[in-house]
Design a protein around this nucleic acid. Structure first.
Lengths: 136, 136
DNA sequence: ACCTTGTGGTTGATACGTCAACCATGATAT
DNA sequence: ATATCATGGTTGACGTATCAACCACAAGGT
């Protein structure tokens, strides 16, 4: 239980610092960043909603709500496909420019608040736990 | 960045499993459990709101909102102190009984989904990271 | 033709988190 | 005495997360 609380505490502190740094400088939430980043990484700017949901490991409802807010802020566009009933999500120019701004900030923040605290053994430990935790 | 994502992923999976197991069986959220547990651990059933907030590392607003919901469900009671403008939070009988139900479930879930995945070196790593992450 | 099932998505309700504004009161400074 | 500040808390607004219900359409089985 002590281990559990330490683990939770570390995560919340570190994660909070990284997210806060990003959102202060760019106005993006973690979810916003995840969506935009995947759009360009995996789809060169556009993805169908289902693919996006899968890659984020979000359910369709969560993504739908989130996209509604992002669309309202002009970060993405929704447009129905005519081939089937899917929807294509496209990053807007403004979304792309904010993402480009965010990328270096995020990677610096991760380095500063996380990677710099880790020894090689810590990284080893994290890697292995990630594998073990994948199948319950 | 890969390390970061692995770390985030492990946390979310494991944490989600533990919380889900608790909430399915007891109807308590993580916040509910934290409040009730601290009330009995640190205050023998009652704490002033400020102490509770400090021990949870929550701001007063968050706690106030949460207590409103918990009070509505009959888990805690609020009563103003006459010595100063503080408020005393007391666990109710029903809150106590739900907590007693939850405790073994939580500790079993933590063991099953978390501790059992860890080697001694992992624990060492977690412990040290917790210390290093305390002061940014 | 009709019923079920699956896919892809939206919507509403409710819980949770965060921020800023507010309020009451006591302590301190001028 | 009056202004200022600190303490302890509440409130409202808004973003985020989850759940269940819904809708439209296509494909298969009867």
């Amino acid at each position: 239980m002590r281990i559990w609380n330490m683990w939770k505490g570390s995560y919340k502190r570190i994660f909070g610092r990284v997210v806060k740094e990003m959102s202060e400088y760019t106005g993006l939430s973690e979810g916003d960043f995840g969506v935009l980043d995947r759009l360009v990484q995996f789809g060169n700017g556009k993805l169908r909603q289902q693919e996006l949901a899968d890659s984020m490991d979000w359910d369709k409802s969560r993504l739908s709500h989130h996209l509604t807010r992002m669309e309202k802020r002009g970060l993405v566009l929704r447009k129905p496909l005519d081939t089937d009933r899917g929807v294509q999500i496209t990053i807007t120019a403004s979304g792309k420019s904010i993402l480009d701004q965010a990328l270096p900030i995020v990677s610096k923040a991760i380095r500063k608040h996380f990677l710099d605290l880790l020894t090689d053994e810590d990284i080893e430990s994290i890697t292995k736990l990630a594998v073990r935790s994948k199948t319950p």
